[in-house]
Nucleic acid binder design. Structure first.
Length: 653
RNA sequence: GCGCCCGUAGCUCAGUUGGAUAGAGCAACGGAUUUCUAAUCCGUUGGCCGCAGGUUCGAGUCCUGCCGGGCGCGCCA
């Protein structure tokens, strides 16, 4: 039951009676922020008053007269400039709670009246490269969105657009041809391939740092120093504004120089450290221009070279296995994992189509799409003939359109790629993709406690597996503290659920559009808006049934009635009925933090209830049953809510 | 140079798309209780919502300009 939607339906009729073309004003029916203003409030009398040229309070009266809510609300009240405050009738709430309680399958949550088809594109790691902290948000947010949309009755197709056809594979092939340890490969392919990738990657990185980055940085530093120098002796113009702007430019130029200096020092230190390792320097000397060589292997693969294609076929399963291990740990699955390689034979066709439609033109040897509002073109074919991820993404849209006819494709990808998606979507629309909604579900960066992007001390990306392991390890301490858990086995299982849950919840609880600071201590805290707190709340609620030896499943369908004997019960009951609204919000703006906020709110309502209302020691059996049912519905809501976030619960904690 | 995003309590973050007196957790301080799991609950302190204008019944939210920060910008993904 979606109370808000129901109230809006009722108001739509009333508004139409006053002003036929003001349907959008139903959006101004909202949950009240303060209980003293009732449960919900309608704020449409003010704009309507303006439109109709009448005092808002008078409009409010006319709205109420035209409004048919007697079955669900107490008589509406007008307050302030014309707010209409609505308080739901207890009997009505109780009826709806009773329905939710008895509905074992879906606890009263209705399926979408108009189901849509969503393709959700998320996670998208590069095979060969170990997954790192940068993949966590996409994976976790995408998974949660899939679960919520599916639960609401939509058709959801999750597709992991893995990078299985790029340069990293060239590196592995190069590594295999020059550094392979055959015995190790035969025994355990995954670690050996991983070793090869890392080795080649490090050599290429070093080469790039030495031959490209270092000189470039030096040049840039010299330029900027010169610039700072030339700025530092300004002619005082007497114009205050111009002088201020000049001073700002000087400050900025100096800051840039100091930043570049630090950068240069760091780079030099890295190169020195590399040179100090005799084995590494030997390899670097033995493999000059390794970057170009790896690219050549990639090019051969793309060109269909028999040996490289065979190696690709041979190595890919092992690489996927490695990734799957992480997904298993996270409890994340996909309907499809159609990677870049799946589209490689469709790319030429995409470019041809763009050109024949006159959307793309050749420019400087490359095939480009020039778009309004963008200076830089969207390049779909390089001058050397190779295709880019822009090309693959367009081919992917075509394939999805043809194969699944989606109403929307969601790309759960970090915000730095927003320009790419703007261009991609514009180009796709030019090519024609109907009414389909294309959404970049963007998110911010995971930061360390210093406020900078989360990195290891040496400056490399933090491996995802290690990150998860550490969370589980730390969660073990929580499990070990529980007097409820007695077996080592249960402790281990609980630690996994608490640790993984903590990481996921911390991520999902933040507004995805902002960056957030990664902190084990905060995410594993037993207080506040964390998974551990929610899991603990749930375990505590459920412990009541065991202690009271209650067969709660039987009670649900026994016909026992829920009643409100105290304000805390009513407040809890109302919160329980608002679960649907939270889910609807998640689905409408693709933001799971609406659900975490709801769950935390629900847990607070439950705490107050639990404090004020004895359950097992209730005055009489009927009240005890009623409260048990409220407890049960709370636990089921928390469990269902966490499950929709991809988070498991524990029985004891 | 151009474009996008951000600035809310000491810290970490919400703020239902323009609604009433801006919220939560942590930290600090003060209370409660013979526990249904004290991993609790209640209260107090703490805010020029970066600054200045504007729009209107009403602005943390919208528009403009500044200040401060992040990110991106032709052949990487």
């Amino acid at each position: 039951m979606n109370i808000l939607a129901e109230l809006r339906r009722r108001f739509a009729t009333a508004i139409a009676a006053l002003a036929p073309d003001s349907g959008e004003l139903v959006e101004l029916v909202l949950p009240s922020q303060d209980a003293k203003f009732g449960d919900y409030q309608a704020n449409c009398a003010m704009p309507l008053g303006k439109k109709l040229g009448a005092p808002p309070r008078q409009i409010a009266e006319r709205l109420i007269a035209a409004l048919d809510v007697a079955d669900l609300c107490e008589p509406p009240e007008i307050a302030g400039p014309g707010f209409i405050n609505l308080r739901l009738r207890a009997e009505w709430l109780l009826t709806k709670l009773q329905v939710a309680s008895a509905d074992v399958e879906r606890r009263g949550i209705e399926l979408a009246a108009a189901p849509r088809t969503f393709v959700v594109d998320y996670s998208s790691p590069n095979v060969a490269k170990p997954m790192h902290v940068g993949h966590i948000r996409s994976t976790v947010i995408g998974d949660a969105l899939c679960r919520v949309l599916k639960f609401l009755g939509h058709r959801v197709i999750s597709d992991n657009h893995i990078g299985d056809w790029g340069t990293q594979f060239g590196m592995i092939i190069y590594g295999y041809k020059h550094f392979v340890d055959d015995a190790a490969l035969a025994q355990a392919p995954v670690p050996e391939l991983s070793r090869l990738y890392k080795l080649v990657n490090r050599l290429i990185e070093h080469e790039d740092q030495r031959d490209n980055q270092l000189p470039a940085l030096r040049t840039k530093l010299a330029e900027q120093m010169e610039r700072a120098q030339s700025l530092s002796a300004p002619p005082a113009t007497g114009d205050e504004k111009a002088d201020k702007q000049h001073a700002k430019k000087v400050r900025q130029a100096e800051a840039v120089v100091s930043e570049l200096r630090t950068e240069l020092a760091e780079l030099e230190a890295k190169l020195a450290a590399f040179a100090a390792d005799p084995e590494q320097s030997r390899l670097a000397k033995a493999h000059p221009r390794i970057g170009a060589a790896a690219l050549a292997e990639t090019a051969k693969l793309h060109a269909g070279d028999a040996e490289n294609v065979a190696l690709w076929r041979r190595f890919l399963p092992a690489c996927l296995e490695e990734i799957d291990e992480t997904y298993q740990m996270l409890g994340v699955t996909f309907d499809h994992a159609l990677g870049e390689s799946f589209y490689h034979d469709q790319l030429a066709g995409v470019v041809e189509k763009l050109q024949s439609q006159g959307i793309a033109v050749e420019d400087g040897g490359a095939v480009c799409v020039f778009l309004d509002g963008h200076e830089a073109p969207f390049i779909v074919r390089k001058k050397d003939g190779a295709f880019l991820y822009a090309t693959t993404d367009l081919a992917t849209i075509h394939y999805r359109l043809r194969e699944w006819q989606p109403d929307a494709i969601l790309y759960v990808v970090d915000h730095r790629q927003s320009l790419h998606f703007e261009q991609l979507f514009s180009t796709a629309r030019k090519m024609g993709c109907g009414e389909m909604e294309l959404v970049h579900v963007s998110f911010g960066t995971v930061l360390g406690e210093d406020g900078k992007p989360y990195k290891t001390r040496s400056g490399s990306a933090v491996g995802l597996k290690g990150l998860l392991d550490e969370a589980v390890e730390r969660a073990y301490e929580i499990a070990a503290k529980s007097p409820q858990i007695t077996s080592e086995d249960e402790r281990r299982t609980a630690a996994k659920k608490i640790g993984i849950g903590a990481i996921k919840y911390a991520d999902l609880a933040h507004n995805r559009t902002s960056d957030y600071v990664f902190s084990y201590d905060k995410m594993l805290a037993m207080n506040g808006n964390t998974a551990a707190y929610m899991q603990y709340s749930n375990a505590r609620v459920k412990s009541i049934f065991a202690r009271g030896e209650v067969n709660i499943a039987a009670l649900r369908t026994s016909g026992a009635k829920i009643q409100f004997s105290a304000p805390a019960e009513r407040a809890l009951g109302l919160a329980l009925l608002q679960f649907t609204e939270a889910l609807a919000r998640v689905a409408s703006d693709y933001r799971p933090n609406h659900l975490t906020a709801y769950l935390f709110e629900l847990a607070s309502r439950y705490s107050e209830f639990f404090e004020q209302c004895p359950v097992l020691k209730a005055e009489d059996a009927a009240l005890r049953d009623s409260r048990l049912l409220l407890c049960d519905l709370t636990a089921r809501t928390i469990e269902q809510g966490l499950a929709l976030l991809g988070i498991e619960t524990v029985e004891r904690m």
